[in-house]
Structures are given as structure tokens and as C-alpha cells.
Computed example of a mutant assay.
Amino acid sequence: MSTLTWTTAVPLASLAAWVWLLLGQGFFWRTDVRMPPAPAEEPAVWPSVTVVVPARDEAEVLPVSLPSLLTQDYPGRAEVLLVDDGSTDGTGRLARTLAERTPDGLPLTVLSAGEPEPGWTGKLWALRCGIAHARAGRTGGGVPEFLLLTDADIAHGPDSLRRLVRGALAGRLDLVSQMARLRVRTGWERMIVPAFVYFFSQLYPFRWVNRPAARTAAAAGGCALLRTGTAVRARLPDSIRDAVIDDVTLGRAVKRAGGRIWLGLADSVTSVRPYEGLGPLWRMVSRSAYAQLLNNPLLLAGTVLGLALVYLVPPVWACAGSPVGGAAWLLMTLTYLPILRYYGQPLWLAPVLPVTAALYLAMTVDSAVQHYRGRGAAWKGRTYR
């Protein structure tokens, strides 16, 4: 291939990719997929809900997140089950203390999950323990109609549970999940976190996820309201017990079982977990990036080439004087602006997205390297192959 053909074809391919992403990938870049408006009339009888919180060494964030669950303004019967997943920092004791300080809050039960059986990830084993306890009606309230699966680092607004249930009832949904607002305060968080949500929605466009007939399925594991009957029908969480990326797998399992799912961005559901420095953010992404590619080296090679073509070629060719490369870079920048606005971040970060993409590319390669070294999908002292 001649130099002229090469310098023309590569930026044209990148521009074509961005035109497709802009118009043909479910408008993934838009941030208006939010919780459906609540109906004017409230339910005559509010369904019962059990909140299941898997927690492993979460004493740092629990004083902020757990009280937000205990003080939910919910008209129906609700309870909180915190499943202590082998914590060594006093997570279970702290949870009981926080409940004692909230005497008028929702009732709290602290369970011990024990070590997961072979073939289970720790979080899903803890969820299994909590869901089994709820389905057995051991707290005296009978089997709940809904289960709210939420992570220990997620803080909920006072009406979060009410809005989730109303959305599920109004849309006749089996699974309602919201992608919590991650913390964005430090420089590295500003660089990495908005892009994390941006890339996720690019892989799983919310509009496609929310179409019953579409094959695309996903969920946000930090906040997922699930009908108990649907969990039984889909054999959850047993059917996904070895999933490293449990939220996406959860959405697929529910949709595969004929359930209706909804996924969108949150307004009053936030993550309080701090990511000080690049290291924790790097580990957050790299621990599951290669699993996303099915631990397949061919998919890894294709992903590296695809990321380079889509995100790295435009600025390089634009700086070399190519108007086609400049056009591709402009489209990339424009698609990134909405998520930056959603997170309240400076808009000058938009044209710097190629730098962030290069970091994500390096994280993905590192994820594969750690996998082949036997240290893949490591999280809080556990490693999953």
C-alpha cells in the first residue's frame, strides 16, 4: 500500500467509525436515560422489599452508605440484610452500631456468608446467602416481592427505594438498575471515572438494553431492584455464580429468562468510595477488563487495534495536518461532552479523551498479563481465574 493510500485510508476508517458511533450505536453518548417519571397515583399497596448488601472490608465507607439505606422514606415493608463476606475490619460490628444509632430506621440483619464454595465469586456467594435468607422469610415478614441488590459503597437519596419501586411497577419491569454516580474529586478521578461510564454505555447502549426485543443486556450492580419471582425463574444468583462481571451477567440472565429490564443513569444514587491516585482506579478497571474479552487473546488483539484506530489515530493524524483526522477527533470530542456535563467536569477534558483511552488500553493489556500470571480478577485478597 502506498504512503498516500495509507495516510488517506486510516483516518477515513477512523472517521467512518465515529460517524457510526455517533448515529448507529444507540445514541450511547446521550445522558438523558434516567428513571422514568413516576405515575401521578401511588400504589394502593406498596410491595415488600429486602435490601441485600454484600460487604467485604467496607468499614471506611459504611458510615456514609448504610445510614442512607436505613433512613429510606418507603411506605411499604422494607428491611436491610448486610452480608458480611469475611471482613477483617469489623464491618459487621460497625453495621450493627450504625443501626443502633438509627432506632427509627429500617430493621437491619447482619449475616455471615462464610467462605465461598468452589466456583463462586465472593460477591455472588454473599448475595446467595442474603437472597436465600430473604426468600426463607426468616426475619418474620414473609417472602419479599422485590430485592434491592446494592453495594456497600453506594449511598441512596431518601426517596431512592420509593422511586425504584414506582419505576418497576409503572413499567412492569423485572429488573431496574441505575448506574451510580461515581466519586469525581481528584485529578485522576476526573480523568478516568467519566470515561468509565462513557465506555460502558458505548459497549451497552442503554436504549438497546431497555428494548425488550433487543439482544443487548446489562445492569449496574451497585443498584439493582429485582423481582424475587424473576430471580427464582432465572435461578439467580446460582446461574451466574462464577461471573466476574456480575452486573452485565445479571442483566443477561434476567432478559434470557423473559424478564423486562431497564438501565439508566442515577440522579440520587452515588458511590462514596474514594480512588486516591491512579493505582486504585487502574485495579478497578484491569481486574475485569480481560474477562470482558472472555479471556481470549484474539479478542484482545482486536480490541487493541480497534481502540488505536478509533481513539488514537484521530489526534495523531490531525496533528499531522489531516482534516479527516481532525473531523474524527471533533466527533469524538462532541460525544464526550454530555458525560462531562453529567459529572460537572470541565469541558476541556473532552479533547483529552485519547489520552484517557490510551490509559484504558494499557489497563486492558495489563489485565491480560495479570490473568496469564495467575493474578487476574484480584479483589480484596481473592483471585478468580
Rank of each mutant, 00 (worst) to 15 (best):
Q72P: 00
T333R: 10
L307C: 12
W282D: 05
R135T: 13
G302M: 14
R166M: 15
W262T: 06
S14K: 12
Q202V: 05
D89S: 05
T121N: 03
A16Q: 03
G122N: 13
A168I: 15
A17P: 00
D85G: 03
T333K: 11
G141I: 12
L300N: 07
L124A: 06
V269L: 10
L127N: 05
V269Y: 02
G141T: 14
L69T: 02
V355A: 14
L127R: 11
C223S: 05
L62A: 01
T102W: 00
G26P: 00
T270H: 14
L98G: 01
N295Y: 15
S288L: 08
L294A: 11
H133S: 09
P315W: 07
E117P: 00
L307S: 06
A301E: 11
A266R: 04
M191G: 03
A214W: 07
Y336W: 11
A320D: 09
D153C: 10
R77L: 09
L182K: 06
V19S: 01
L94G: 00
L299D: 05
T356N: 09
Y204M: 08
H133Y: 15
Y74S: 04
I240K: 02
G137E: 10
V49H: 01
S65W: 01
G381Y: 06
L69K: 14
G105K: 03
D104G: 01
G321V: 15
A234V: 07
T383S: 11
T356G: 03
R166G: 02
G140L: 10
V244M: 08
G325T: 13
G142V: 13
R227V: 10
K255C: 07
K255R: 13
R260K: 15
T383D: 07
D151A: 10
A231W: 02
G105V: 05
V197L: 15
F200D: 07
L293Y: 03
G140H: 09
E60H: 05
L281S: 02
L300K: 08
A328D: 11
W379H: 11
V244G: 00
